[in-house]
Amino acid sequence: MSPKDSRGITTSNSALYKFHRPKLRVRDTPHPLKCESELCLRNLSTHRTKRPAPPYPRTHGAAVLVALFVGRAGDLYVLLSQRAKTLSSYAGDTALPGGRIDDDDETIEDTARREAFEEIGLPQDKHKLPLLCILDPFLAGNEVLVTPVVVLILDNTLTPVLNAPEVDTLFSHPLASFLSTTFPERAEPRGPFLEAEAHAETAALELQYHTHSDVPWPQPWSTSADSAARAVRMHRFLTGREAGGMKPIYGLTAAILIRTAAIAYGRPPEFPVQARGEPEINERVAWSLRHPGKRLEEAMRRERFDAERAARVWDKWEGGKWRTGKFRQRVPSRL
């Protein structure tokens, strides 16, 4: 649990962001890496958040696992799933495995690994799936603060065990394609779980691979005078399986994968990431704490959470900002 002051009010998230980084070796990957992919893993393994995220209600915190693996040609892929169509929220969406923080989760990494195990049967072994990095959090539309945890799968013989009530399908997608406006030209042969199939469907559909829409900010319940003056950009990528009923990769999942790919490949995407005047994550979180929706307000009341005190910390937080300059990290490599 997060530290509390004498009144029992949460004051920090620092305990959630403690994690173990085993030493990685390039020769441990099941397939030889391309030079570009090796550099990607170095960039990710040396990435550090500027500082842990400021306080936020624990019951409104979540994590997702960005599970990468090396294909036979040496390229990097990410595992994605299609949520079950019977779920009450985000039914049928294309997503990363993840979910809310449990009481027993000591760190945000524990949350991501546990959820991936429960949803798709991904082992929680930290040596077979070593941690690469933790990214700065993202704020979901339901005001849940989501932290991405990036790992590397070193065992390409893993077999999926899908939790049918939660997951319908598992597939993979090239990581580099989240920096591109055009669909990846080809897919790899099968790898761990179900590696990306051929993308002939997309060519037949003649649809644009990457598109975006700008959603007004703040949230709809706002009475702010400038609510229509700013927006948050939502990106959309086709999977190549739309003809079969698969939804595109959209919104929060797309944003997380854009950030992961940009750090890995050390370059910004081919398209503008943010809308003009888009608020940074710290501004959006501080605003939500001061103008919470019903569920966030109830969570803060249950946890005796000091919203204004936390919002002031978020006001000054400089993590999570999108930077268009070089992504080179100055941390010694562990590879």
Rank of each mutant, 00 (worst) to 15 (best):
L16I: 02
A176S: 14
M234Y: 03
E318W: 00
I108F: 12
V331I: 13
H235L: 12
A200N: 12
R241Q: 00
R100F: 04
A264E: 02
G74I: 07
G99R: 07
T29A: 04
H20N: 05
E308R: 01
S180W: 05
P55Y: 01
G71T: 02
R236N: 13
A140D: 11
K321G: 03
V66N: 07
T10M: 09
G277L: 10
D168E: 12
H20F: 14
P216T: 03
E119I: 02
R7F: 07
R113S: 06
P189D: 01
P32E: 11
N142V: 07
A229S: 15
T94P: 07
N142M: 06
K50N: 11
H210S: 04
A196Y: 04
G319I: 05
S333G: 11
P189Y: 00
A254I: 04
S222P: 15
L76E: 02
T10P: 07
I258P: 00
E115I: 13
F178A: 10
G319V: 03
E166V: 00
I108E: 08
E188L: 00
E166I: 09
F193R: 00
A203V: 14
F171Q: 02
A203H: 13
L16K: 08
S14W: 05
S37Y: 09
R83T: 04
P22E: 11
R309S: 04
G277T: 13
L24A: 14
K85I: 13
T59I: 15
I153R: 07
P160R: 09
T111S: 12
G277F: 10
Q219G: 15
W287A: 06
P269M: 09
R113V: 04
F237V: 03
V26D: 08
G71N: 06
P268Y: 06
N43W: 01
S12T: 07
D28F: 14
D110Y: 14
G61K: 13
V26L: 00
I108D: 06
S224D: 14
R276F: 04
D168Q: 04
P174G: 09
S288T: 11
R301F: 07
A243L: 09
G244D: 14
L87G: 03
D168T: 09
A254Y: 07
T29P: 00
R330S: 09
M1W: 10
L158F: 15
L252G: 03
G191Y: 08
E206K: 13
R25Q: 06
S213P: 01
G98V: 05
P174F: 13
L205G: 05
Y90H: 09
P55T: 02
R7W: 08
K316Y: 03
N156F: 15
K247P: 07
D103E: 08
D214C: 01
G191K: 01
R312V: 01
A262R: 06
G99T: 10
L162F: 12
T157K: 14
K294T: 11
R58C: 05
T260P: 02
A231P: 08
V167D: 01
R190W: 04
P269S: 04
E106V: 08
T49E: 12
E308C: 08
E36W: 15
H291F: 10
R301Y: 09
W317T: 00
A67C: 13
V151K: 06
A62H: 13
R295L: 09
L207I: 04
G251A: 13
L252A: 10
H235N: 05
P160A: 08
L24I: 04
R27G: 02
L33T: 06
R21Q: 10
A198Q: 01
S224F: 15
E280W: 15
T324D: 15
L139W: 15
